[in-house]
Nucleic acid binder design. Structure first.
Length: 490
RNA sequence: GAGCCGUUAGCUCAGCAGGUAGAGCAUCUGACUUUUAAUCAGGUGGUCACAGGUUCGAUUCCUGUACGGCUCACCA
């Protein structure tokens, strides 16, 4: 980049000078004996320098450097933390010290020495030898304020991770969340599988897809918006418990809790219904929180949350009654329409009763659900893959769960009646024809699978990014995705 | 897509009722062998996001564009 040419030029000159000393600035390997945190742990009791001091070898990035003439202090940072090193000319020799003087903040070095504690009490490695492992020619951000600019932090996540250790911590936790869930599912005899990202027919959710093209097949393909229909094919095939952490892609807006590509855990369990899945859900999430924090009570922004099961369960109709002040049950579609418009809902006029209930819920209920809450029994119109309730075919056995006003997951008793499913597909196809660009087409192969017979099955999807936001107290989805989607810089 | 805000040195930020810019840190030179935001002395570094307009003169005022942030809309 042109703007830092001068500083980069300076460092390239140092690079040349280092080479003139016969030192290769980009050697091939180094063998550390300790990480910084291992030293902090193993030498916690040490007082001063001792003659039988154990030699350690560490490797890391120089974060600060304080030269004092013939000696110098610096902090090295590795993947686990930082440790101070103390470099003395009379220890390492005059020529190595000249080379060391050309090291900069950002350089990656290996150092061997003994551990002691300085006058001010900081555990420090007194260096016997130090060598350059990789010369940095681009200056790091300032040490005190670090890197603040969000744009730079998202675009140059590497610089963000170097400068802001708490960022790295979030992503370590993200991995731990996935790992905790994986362990629990494996223990429960679920099998982790992989299904196509490139799909000839997209489905399993209402969303606009990304489209791509396969040259050899000479056909359009879609990046999956969900993997639901593939996992259920596997249930048909006899995998009774399957799951996948699925990177899904939706060609829609971006905001605090939407990124065009995101990760969804989907799982399917044969012979379970949505009530059983509800129990699994609250257990999975509470246990994940415990693995991470040792407790199911967490803080998210200004809210204190208790994820301990059982969570509140509220039917969508009850929720609308409670929060929107409208009881949809006794009302006709027309009456409900009028009531909804009266409270300020913006409707076109051709909505069905179920659609209006769902709209009322989205508008007046969702944001009020702070503590973890299951909302159950959705209108059939908005749930094309869920089984009808036996006692009321206008509603389905479905739940979503909300925490801090955010939808985190979605589940249902899976529709396994192939005739009913075909009918639901046809309704979607009609909507698509009519211009609903989030509806989807008939998936004949999926119907064929159902025709072979799918056991009664409960299915669940959990937004891993949003769950990570909650469990790591991050305000934006961009802070739990390493490389969030951004417009090009230029 | 709309509204508001932002973009000034490598980083973090000031500044200007219009008169072509400052600080701290980083960097460079010198001093300094237990410092830690090291210290002391001196220096370098800027197309003030980009393009137009108003003006004798614009980094400053106006308009547009780009990128970002927040809110809303859209959206699971």
């Amino acid at each position: 980049m042109e703007e830092t040419k001068d500083l980069i030029q300076q460092r390239r000159e140092k690079l040349d000078e280092i080479r003139k000393f016969g030192v290769e600035p980009y050697p091939h390997k180094y063998e550390p004996t300790h990480t910084t945190s291992a030293i902090q742990r193993d030498f916690a009791d040490i007082q001063e320098t001792s003659d039988d001091a154990q030699t350690v070898r560490i490797a890391g990035r120089i974060m600060t450097k304080r030269d004092h003439g013939k000696s110098s202090f610096a902090h090295l940072q590795d993947s686990e933390g930082q440790i101070q090193i103390y470099v003395r000319r009379d220890k390492i020799g005059p020529d190595p010290y000249k080379i060391y003087r050309r090291f900069d903040g950002g350089d990656i070095v290996g150092a061997e020495g003994t551990v002691f504690r300085t006058r001010t009490g900081e555990l420090t490695v007194l260096v016997d030898t130090i060598e350059l492992l990789s010369k940095s020619i681009r200056p790091l951000p300032e040490k005190w304020h670090g890197l603040q600019d969000k744009q730079t932090r998202y675009r140059q996540r590497y610089a963000d991770l170097i400068m802001n250790p708490e960022v790295k911590d979030v992503f370590v936790k993200r991995t731990q969340i996935v790992q905790a869930i994986r362990n629990m599912l494996n223990t429960r005899n679920f099998i982790e599988v992989e299904t196509p990202v490139l799909q000839p027919i997209y489905g399993g959710a209402n969303a606009r897809p990304f489209t791509t093209y396969h040259n050899t097949l000479e056909q359009s393909l879609y990046l999956r918006i969900a993997n639901e229909l593939y996992l259920k094919r596997l249930i048909v095939g006899g995998f009774d418990r399957v799951y996948e952490f699925s990177r899904d892609f939706r060609n829609e807006g971006m905001d605090r809790d939407h990124n065009p590509e995101f990760t969804m855990l989907e799982l399917y369990q044969a012979y379970a219904d949505y009530i059983e899945i509800m129990e699994l859900t609250e257990t999975l999430i509470a246990e994940t929180a415990k693995t991470l924090h040792g407790t199911a009570k967490i803080t998210y922004q200004e809210h204190e949350l208790d994820l301990t099961p059982p969570w509140e369960r509220l039917s969508m109709v009850d929720a609308v009654r409670k929060y929107a002040g409208i009881d949809p049950v006794p009302l006709s579609a027309d009456e409900l329409y009028k009531a909804a418009v009266d409270v300020g809902l913006d409707l076109v006029g051709d909505e069905t009763k179920g659609k209006i209930i769902a709209e009322l819920f989205d508008e007046y209920v969702e944001s009020k659900l702070i503590q973890p809450t299951f909302i159950t029994d959705y209108p059939i119109e908005v749930s094309p893959f869920a089984k009808k309730k036996p006692d009321n075919p206008q509603f389905v056995e479905r739940f979503e769960f909300f925490i801090c006003g955010m939808e985190v997951g979605n589940a249902f008793s899976e529709l396994n009646d192939p005739v009913d499913q075909r009918q639901r597909f046809l309704e979607q196809a009609n909507s698509l024809e009519a211009g609903d660009d989030e509806a989807f087409m008939v998936d004949e192969d999926y119907l064929r699978a159902l025709e072979y017979g799918m056991p009664p099955t409960g299915g669940l999807g959990i937004g891993i990014d949003r769950l990570t936001m909650l469990l790591t107290n991050q305000y934006s989805i961009r802070d739990v995705i390493l490389f969030p989607q951004m417009r090009p810089e230029n």
